[in-house]
Amino acid sequence: ILLSTVSPEQFVLTLLEAEPPNVLVSRPSKPFTEASMMMSLTKLADKELVHMIGWAKKIPGFVDLSLYDQVRLLESCWMEVLMIGLMWRSIDHPGKLIFAPDLVLDRDEGKCVEGILEIFDMLLAMTSRFRELKLQHKEYLCVKAMILLNSSEYAVASDRLSRSHDCLVPPCAVRPGPLTCFLFFVHSNKGMEHLLSMKCKNVVPVYDLLLEMLNAHTLRGQ
């Protein structure tokens, strides 16, 4: 895509086409235990991460970055991208978290897992805020792309990436205030710490891509 010739509408269309598919992770037939809920959530996250990489590669400008910068951006933002996706899926369902179409959790189910209720409440509160502000789908797409492009604590220098940024601004310019708020709402620290503690306590085995991403975050934090 020649970014200089792309209209904001076309850019939003590109983001729409980049959207990952819905991931399914069936709910266990028995009531949740701490281990089974964490297992469902980590399985889902691992599957979603694979799709997230495909999504990122379709964000204009991203693949022009060095592999090193691509890794750095994704390692910084993956939990926030998972969270905003969850919030968007849950926006029309007060009190529920739609992790997947077949994994809908009520707030109180968070009581199964030590420490997760606080995170569920935070996610539900952020989702209600999105609902109150009437977050539109195209705004969601733009905010999610911004989370990716803004995620590294180091400056990622790329002419194409800054032009991507410029393309993201017009669709969001209608309501810059609320959209800046959306960016501030999405914080992943608590979720990351919780997942790390669940892994350290051996409540759930964390493997594959999710393990890599969690380790990357942990190493950077030290």
Partner: peptide, 13 residues
């Protein structure tokens, strides 16, 4: 981050 790099480097979606 081996798998991440692998997935980023692969051209197939």
């Amino acid at each position: 981050s081996h798998k991440l790099v692998q997935l980023l480097a692969s051209t197939a979606e």
